[in-house]
Design a protein around this nucleic acid. Structure first.
Lengths: 180, 180, 180, 180
DNA sequence: AATGAATGAGCCTTCATTCAT
DNA sequence: AATGAATGAAGGCTCATTCAT
């Protein structure tokens, strides 16, 4: 039964992820439970609170992102490729959630820490990319990380989002735009 | 009497604007009425519905923005200055509201129309700016408008927002960055 | 409408009093509202909380009792008559409430204070009664007050409750019982 | 296996007794099971119902009391001593339970029968005590039993409860109080 | 037989909306 | 026309009870 419980937990998270992504943070616990094919009680057995559920999803999403960035940082490819990989990864996720949630709940300690970790990792990568000459160096790494966040952490962001493309393109030194 | 009514309506809108900007979209009708110094009944005399109130605020904000952009377009200054003016104007508004509302309600016809109008006006200005040589032309006007929107229509955006600065700077041909 | 509101508040208290007395403290807010012929919302307009309602009832009942005891203390009759009057008064009330509530909620400051006030008033009266010779003096006033409380503050206590009679009788020096 | 089952049943009853006595009747089945070191399922194997559990506890407590009273009645000591023994016995039990439960559930047939049996036994003893001259005879045995119940069946009653002492003392003819 | 996960009715509470004054 | 009291649907959460393992 441990297996069953775990599966149910996963179902809940998946359902919540879907519903939040599609209908915003206003979705009711009942709806989430229903989408997961379970009773409310089960949902509350796994998460003591609505906040706990939201927190778990946000934390989970952010942790996965952090781990992805870390993994990317360790790969033996150019820093530029790493950055592009991160953007692509984010675009494949319903990261919109993170943005949406940040209004509602008072962002836990854990969540803030994760966000900072991710930003720090990204800033490192950007800095190295600047040194390797693939990213323009007239902006600070912090500014560039800000741009990446905006490009990627918006509701509705997608892999082929023109905005992401534009921003990435605008950061690259490889760009041959501009008469020059 | 008519004057009184108008004043009440304005008070309501102002109160709602303040509260939404400060405490998010969760504010109750009662709170809004109270902030306006009125009873709920009076609020409902002016707005049949919560949706109507929100819609009115969003529409009003967007209409003002459109008018501002139009007025800017008619001024005899460089298109670049017009763009900078638009960004500054937006930054002074609690435009965050627009973003916040866009999640909740299913954006009315009117609202979509206004957004399109604004984007079209901006695109025109951008195109002219590209012709006058003040904005880089390796991006389509549409892409650039997208960037401007992102820079400006986020919760918490401000006039001195580094991101806005960065994006504007990135769009300008005047920039001396990049060895060139 | 002020009048209406007041009447509704009174209806709520009366309904709660009835239901608590009859079915115990487990009665739901919905049931209370229904008994009062009102919607739940109205109940919550008058009492922010279940606790607030319970507290209000308990406090009201105890305040009335205290005032009654005080008034009795000021009357120019024998202290014995005052005691009998108090017992009769209590027996006419659904004082059972007080007892029942004392388990459930963590008895507020106000409530404790009222209980102490009442006990102190009664102890004074008892002491004077002992001096006037109408109450046996081989028990301390405190013990006697304890007996009175028990006689009177039980679920189901009534004016003609034999137990109250017995205890009063047992306290009186007038009793000619006991062969002597 | 049978032994195991019996032990579990006893654990459940003991746990419930403890928790009810300490935290009131609001304790959940889950908590009881946990206190007993068992799963809820096991609890429900032994008691089909919450009512069944409560009933069992009440019945058990009352049966034990009845047996104790019967045993006392058969002893070759003065009836007065028997009465004192009963009061002491009760005071050692969390008899408060009985009182608390009497509000909630509609007291079963069995329970009413036991209460009547006990009262009848006590009334007999009191009557004999009156004949033996140790208990005042200006009250009916029924009234005296009522007093004893009140002295003893209250939440928080203890062996050295001043009220019990006072009442017992008040019933005794041995008392030297009152000038006489 | 024991376990604890799942269930869902029911409770407390909030808030958009209506309506009597 | 303004007010704020009344309404009740709906949401979050608990807990007695059932059931799969």
């Amino acid at each position: 039964m441990r297996a069953d419980a775990r599966r149910n937990r996963e179902r809940i998270v998946a359902a919540a992820l879907d519903l939040f992504a599609e209908h915003g943070a206003g979705v009711s616990m009942e709806e989430i439970a229903q989408e997961a094919g379970l009773g409310v009680g089960t949902l509350y057995r796994h998460f003591p609170d609505r906040r706990a559920l939201v927190e778990d999803i946000a934390t989970g999403t952010l942790t996965a992102l952090r781990d992805h960035v870390r993994a990317g940082a360790d790969e033996a490819v150019s820093r530029w490729e790493v950055l592009v990989g991160v953007v692509r990864y984010c675009a494949g996720q319903p990261l919109a959630l993170i943005t949406r949630f940040s209004d509602a709940s008072p962002k836990s300690e854990t969540r803030s820490r994760l966000v900072h970790e991710i930003d720090a990792l990204l800033a490192d990568i950007v800095e190295q990319a600047q040194r390797e000459g693939s990213v323009r160096d007239d902006l600070t790494p912090g500014q560039i990380v800000g741009l990446i966040n905006v490009a990627v952490c918006r509701p509705g962001a997608r892999a082929d989002d023109p905005l992401a493309t534009v921003i990435l393109d605008g950061l690259s030194t490889a760009s041959t735009r501009r008469g020059s």
